[in-house]
Design a protein around this nucleic acid. Structure first.
Length: 423
RNA sequence: GGUGAGAUGGGUGAGUGGCUGAAACCACCAGUUUGCUAAACUGACGUACGGGAUUACCGUACCGGGGGUUCGAAUCCCCCUCUCACCGCCA
């Protein structure tokens, strides 16, 4: 959520910036500011009415004790009429504020200055590329064929047990998953991220805190008997650790990492782009989350990007880093960098990480604040990124490293897998 | 699943109708004392919104959440949620 203060003090700025996200905010901003205005005047009126009510009611006890019954009764009558007035004002202001609130959540986060303009994926800017794209022979197979050939991932069995998008990893396939998770967690903790193992189901308040609810309700699996949601990413439980928290000025930086399975309904996405590991309903991901002071958040973002890049580099996968354009960014993000790896047999770039700074947008919803050096309470900044999401890493590893009838495991990973190749 | 107890500020915990935005203690913060540490003493110590000469100040709301009774509710009533304990079951 954007803050009312910003909208009130700098509406033109907000409108201009949201245009970068192709969002026409003019009408909403104007409405919000009108409602904000009435919110304040209603509250001022209500407060003074309540103050008078309170003062008068307090007199009654004393008058009764002194036996001045008639005076007491007179005041009672006055209070009664004040009460009628204040409850009417209260009703009005509640109505006003809930309308305000419902408009406020419609506004996406404003993109920061570096975000390029653009409509969609084709307008994203490639800021960096690394590692070589391998030359594969004409008999190279896509990963779903390789998975079958080596019997390491069984999509059909997943269909039997659950449904499409819930693969079963077997043998070296399963071991590879475990190796990648441990490898990523080890790198992250070495870089100072605290390892956290959170619940994979969250309550409604947590879903709201990070912005999945109410807008993306249909994208999460819902355990309706208990009203819990299966997490679509570790970002949700991990960031919510700091919901309703006021940090001290010296509690920074907060750096956390977590592995969780992620569950996504992916309602409405079908077709060839979702084949094999490209898009799943359940997948494994290691996430990093940071909470920073506003003045430090962009340095933290750079640090996270370098960190994720080092991991991708170490796996030897050809990668590129994209700065997403306004039209392709998420609702809540101020800036997002996507990491993609090249999956050679498919001939496609696959997104394996998304690193974002949310500035104070999430923090405002989460009520995540800190006391600055002057003792003032301010909203903190939140950031997160995948480091990394497994399935597409696996897809690219399988496809790019097929050679001589084997799939070769990158050096860095071998201590974790315990084998050098899959055959 | 059964039974019972409970939810008060960062923590422990007092408070059964007005003098309680809330005792006391602990923790935290600032200061004094001190060779250092510790201890002792002094002071400050919730959040949000609003008003305002916009760091002093004032008002209102908040004692799990919602509703009700009353001139007045942390305190009485109703509903909901959650937590804990014991029993049963169980990785």
């Amino acid at each position: 959520m954007l803050t009312l203060k910003l909208l009130r003090e700098n509406p033109e700025f907000v409108i201009k910036k949201l245009a970068v996200k192709n969002f026409d905010a003019a009408a909403i901003v104007e409405k919000i500011n009108a409602l904000d205005q009435s919110r304040r005047s209603l509250q001022a009126e209500l407060d003074s009415c309540l103050a008078e009510q309170k003062k008068k009611a307090a007199l009654i006890g004393g008058l009764m004790k002194e036996g001045r019954k008639e005076e007491a009764e007179a005041i009672k009558a006055e209070v009664a009429s004040l009460k009628a007035k204040s409850s009417e004002l209260d009703r009005k202001s509640q109505e006003n504020n809930s309308e305000l609130e419902s408009l406020l959540v419609l506004l996406p986060n404003i993109p920061c200055d570096q975000v390029p303009e653009g409509k969609g994926a084709e307008d994203n800017v490639v800021v960096k590329m690394g590692n070589e794209i391998p030359e594969l022979g004409p008999d190279a197979l896509p990963h779903w064929e390789l998975a079958k050939k080596f019997d390491i991932i069984d999509f059909d069995l997943g269909v039997k047990l659950t449904g499409a998008g819930f693969p079963v990893y077997k043998g070296k396939g399963a071991r590879l998953q475990r190796a990648l998770i441990n490898y990523f967690l080890d790198i992250n903790t070495k870089a100072g991220y605290l390892e956290v193992e959170p619940p994979v189901m969250v309550n409604e308040a947590s879903g709201f805190g990070t912005g999945q609810l109410p807008d993306k309700e249909g994208q999460m699996y819902h355990a309706n008997l208990d009203n819990f949601y299966l997490v679509p990413t570790a970002e949700v439980p991990v960031t919510n650790i700091y919901r309703d928290v006021i940090l001290g000025n010296n509690d920074f930086p907060v750096k956390m990492t977590a592995y969780t399975p992620c569950f996504r309904r992916e309602a409405g996405s079908y077709g060839k782009d979702v084949r094999g590991l490209n898009r799943l309903h359940q997948f494994d991901k290691v996430e990093i989350v940071r909470i920073e002071k506003p003045e430090d958040s962009y340095a933290a973002l750079d640090d996270m990007i370098a960190h994720v890049e080092a991991i991708v580099k170490s796996l030897g996968l050809p990668y590129r880093i994209l700065r997403l354009c306004g039209g392709d960014m998420s609702f809540t993000s101020a800036i997002t960098y996507d990491f993609e790896v090249y999956s050679a047999a498919q001939g496609r770039w696959l997104e394996i990480s998304s690193v974002s700074n949310f500035e104070s947008y999430q923090a405002n919803r989460l009520k995540l604040r800190y006391k600055d050096a002057d003792g003032k309470t301010q909203l903190a900044h939140t950031l997160n990124g995948s480091s990394l999401a497994l399935p597409r890493v696996v897809a690219a590893l399988l496809e790019n490293n097929q050679k001589d009838g084997r799939i070769w495991i990158p050096e860095a990973l071998r201590p974790y897998t315990g084998f050098d190749y899959i055959d």
